[in-house]
């Protein structure tokens, strides 16, 4: 029986796919005006992202951090907290994992990798402690606090890698490389696709189980929809908000750790190309469901990988791909009004 704890039927696939279609149409007009055949460009994009095993591996690799940041955002949304601070958690978690990776050089991989991932997980989680507590206990708007913490995280990590943690003899703002034992094993060398993708998929499955099968997931959903009702039914809403903010930060930190250990191999200033912010679009476009988050992350991952190569094989400038990406985001975020209306009734 799926009677209890299944999300109420949403308006189905049509509205889920609509933002993407609208974005394609709008970007198609832009392409046509700029003198390109939109269908050719889209076919090229599709081929570059999904044409062949190597391309698919590259797309999945690019989608991995987005699955995690989308999941991190969705977890907080569930509890009614609009966490826009996942980007900061990516930085903090990435640095924490890299630190473990180049410091405990003597540990074997089966110990070092979990330890480094755990460091990112915990660091990201702690980063969200203050905004979580402020929201739950003092009703401080989490949008403001988490957004501002992003700038602190980016600058704080930049300071550390320019000073105390700068690689000896290095001129650019980066930590030393992590040892090989700390690198995440690759699934399909030479592709950068690594076990981080499997971890992200496992977390998506856990998220589904959590939101559909557990008492805590149920309470989170109810509290996110109507906090007054949740409190009146005896659910401890403030404590729930703190827990979900910590979990959100933890998953964001893990995204940073996987990016550091899997792709970059160390922490550098300007570490994340906005994974945390794209994660917001992923969560919104994916409507907070595991399958939706996966598909939205694949979409943005595909745009990222094909964008890098498309300008090598055509005269389409990369800016067009960026415009397309931006348009999908705008149409995805058009659901903002709905989220905020919900927040208001909850308050």
């Amino acid at each position: 029986m799926s009677a209890v704890v299944a999300p109420p039927s949403t308006s189905g696939w049509a509205t889920a796919v609509l933002p993407f279609v609208l974005a394609l149409v709008a970007a198609g007009i832009v392409l046509a005006v700029a003198g390109h055949n939109p269908f050719d460009v889209y076919r090229l994009l599709a081929v570059e992202s999904f044409g062949g095993t190597k391309r698919i591996a590259a797309t999945l690799s690019a989608a991995t951090p987005l699955i995690l940041t989308g999941l991190a955002t969705a977890v907080a949304f569930r509890a009614g907290a609009f966490n826009v601070g996942v980007e900061g958690c990516v930085y903090i978690g990435g640095l924490a994992a890299a630190y473990v990776g180049f410091t405990f050089v003597d540990l074997p991989a089966p110990v070092l990798i979990p330890l480094a991932l755990a460091a990112g997980f915990v660091a990201g989680s702690l980063w969200m402690l203050v905004p979580g507590v402020l929201k739950a206990r003092l009703d401080v708007d989490e949008v403001v606090t988490t957004l501002m913490l992003n700038f602190i995280a980016i600058s704080f990590t930049a300071y550390l890698v320019n000073g105390p943690l700068l690689a000896p003899g290095s001129a650019n703002s980066a930590t030393p490389m992590v040892v090989d034992a700390a690198r995440l094993p690759r699934l399909m060398p030479p592709s950068t696709l690594n076990i981080g993708f499997l971890i992200a998929m496992a977390l998506l499955a856990l998220y589904w189980l959590w939101s559909n099968r557990t008492a805590l997931g149920f309470e989170t959903r109810i509290a996110g929809m109507n906090a007054r009702f949740a409190s009146a039914s005896g659910i401890n809403v403030p404590s729930l908000v703190i827990k979900m903010m910590l979990l959100s930060g933890a998953i964001g930190g893990l995204a940073g750790a996987i990016h550091a250990l899997g792709s970059v191999g160390r922490f550098v200033a300007g570490f994340s190309p906005g994974y945390g912010f794209t994660g917001i679009a992923v969560a919104l476009l994916g409507r907070g469901t595991p399958v939706g988050i996966f598909l939205a992350a694949i979409l943005f991952g595909a745009l990222a990988t094909s964008g890098a190569t498309i300008q090598l094989f055509s005269d389409v400038p990369i800016e067009i791909v960026n415009i397309l990406q931006g348009m999908v985001m705008i149409f995805a975020v058009a659901r903002f009004g709905w989220i905020f209306a919900r927040r208001r009734t909850a308050a």
Binding site: V4, V5, R213, A215, M225, F229
Partner: peptide, 27 residues
């Protein structure tokens, strides 16, 4: 009530942690 939540969720909310309805945090 939580009007957006299902009728079933509204019926169980607050009782869902009772031993008869959940075990070890699983519904």
């Amino acid at each position: 009530l939580c009007l957006q939540a299902t009728i079933a969720e509204n019926t169980i909310s607050g009782h869902h942690r009772r031993d008869e309805f959940s075990a070890g945090g699983t519904l």
